[in-house]
Simulated assay, not measured.
Amino acid sequence: MADKLRAQQQLEQLQARYIGVGHADTTKHEWMNNIQRDSLALYVGHPALLQHFSVALNEPQQKVRKMFIDKTIQPCGPPKDKDAEMED
């Protein structure tokens, strides 16, 4: 029983420390936003990946970087209404 309680406490500590881990009330839209933001931050933070995307998109590297940073605001678009999320 103590192991189960300890595991639950560790999970709660991780959820408090790292927002992207999620919790029982995390919606599908929030989860997808967290994943997209993590990915975009990774691309912006690694110059080799950013260069790869700039070559693939045939755009200057600084323009691709700005595009990725701008996209972190709403990476998956505006949230849906609550009724539509319940159906998914």
Rank of each mutant, 00 (worst) to 15 (best):
M1I: 11
A2M: 03
A2T: 05
L5W: 04
A7C: 09
A7I: 09
Q8C: 02
L11K: 08
E12C: 02
Q13H: 06
Q13T: 05
Q13N: 07
L14Y: 09
Q15H: 07
Q15K: 05
Q15A: 07
Q15P: 00
A16Y: 01
A16L: 04
A16R: 06
R17K: 15
Y18N: 04
Y18L: 06
Y18P: 00
V21K: 03
G22I: 02
H23Y: 09
H23V: 01
A24M: 13
A24Y: 14
A24H: 15
A24C: 10
D25V: 00
D25C: 04
T26M: 10
T27F: 06
T27Q: 09
K28L: 13
E30K: 06
N33E: 12
I35C: 07
Q36C: 11
R37M: 04
D38N: 10
D38M: 11
D38K: 07
S39H: 11
L40M: 11
A41E: 06
A41V: 01
L42V: 10
G45K: 13
G45C: 03
A48H: 09
A48Q: 07
A48E: 13
A48R: 08
L50Q: 11
Q51A: 14
F53L: 15
S54H: 07
A56W: 00
N58D: 15
P60Y: 02
Q61N: 13
Q61Y: 05
Q62S: 13
Q62W: 08
K63Q: 14
K66Q: 12
M67Q: 07
M67N: 05
F68H: 04
F68Q: 01
I69M: 05
I69T: 06
I69L: 08
D70N: 12
D70Q: 07
K71D: 03
T72S: 11
T72W: 04
I73V: 02
I73W: 01
Q74V: 04
Q74E: 08
P75V: 03
G77H: 01
G77T: 02
G77V: 00
P78I: 09
P79G: 02
P79D: 07
K80E: 04
D81A: 14
D81C: 15
E85C: 01
M86D: 10
E87P: 07
E87S: 15
D88R: 12
